[in-house]
Amino acid sequence: MDTYKLILNGKTLKGETTTEAVDAATAEKVFKHAANEHGVHGHWTYDPETKTFTVTE
């Protein structure tokens, strides 16, 4: 398992979190669910070198 990071750049919610996942696709599902639960919808990017997802509203 690897550690993946999410950076939230929402209009009303900003922050960072991490998750352990077997691959980037699994981490993305976890992060998108969490972002949706917090009402953050926007443009997603992924940097494979740093294993970091970013969502920007």
Rank of each mutant, 00 (worst) to 15 (best):
M1A: 07
T3N: 05
T3E: 10
T3W: 10
T3I: 14
Y4E: 03
Y4I: 02
K5D: 03
K5H: 12
K5L: 08
K5G: 03
L6T: 02
L6S: 01
I7D: 03
I7S: 03
L8Q: 02
L8M: 13
L8P: 00
N9Q: 10
G10L: 15
G10Q: 04
G10C: 12
G10P: 03
K11M: 12
K11H: 13
T12M: 12
T12I: 11
T12N: 13
L13I: 15
K14S: 10
K14C: 15
G15E: 10
G15S: 13
G15Y: 15
G15H: 15
E16N: 06
E16K: 07
E16R: 07
E16Y: 14
T17F: 15
T18A: 06
T18R: 07
T19Q: 05
T19C: 15
E20N: 10
A21L: 02
A21T: 04
A21V: 04
V22P: 15
V22G: 09
D23E: 03
A24M: 11
A24Y: 12
A25F: 10
A27Q: 00
A27Y: 00
A27I: 01
A27C: 00
E28W: 14
V30G: 04
V30F: 14
F31R: 00
K32S: 05
H33D: 13
H33N: 13
A34Q: 13
A34F: 15
A34D: 05
A35D: 01
N36C: 12
E37D: 09
E37A: 13
E37I: 13
H38C: 15
H38E: 08
G39E: 05
V40G: 02
H41D: 12
G42H: 02
G42K: 02
G42D: 01
H43D: 14
W44E: 00
T45E: 12
T45D: 12
Y46A: 00
D47T: 06
P48I: 08
P48Q: 08
P48F: 07
E49C: 10
E49W: 10
T50M: 06
T50R: 06
T50S: 10
T50C: 05
K51I: 02
K51S: 03
T52S: 05
F53I: 01
F53P: 00
T54H: 06
V55T: 02
T56E: 08
T56P: 01
T56R: 05
E57S: 06
E57F: 06
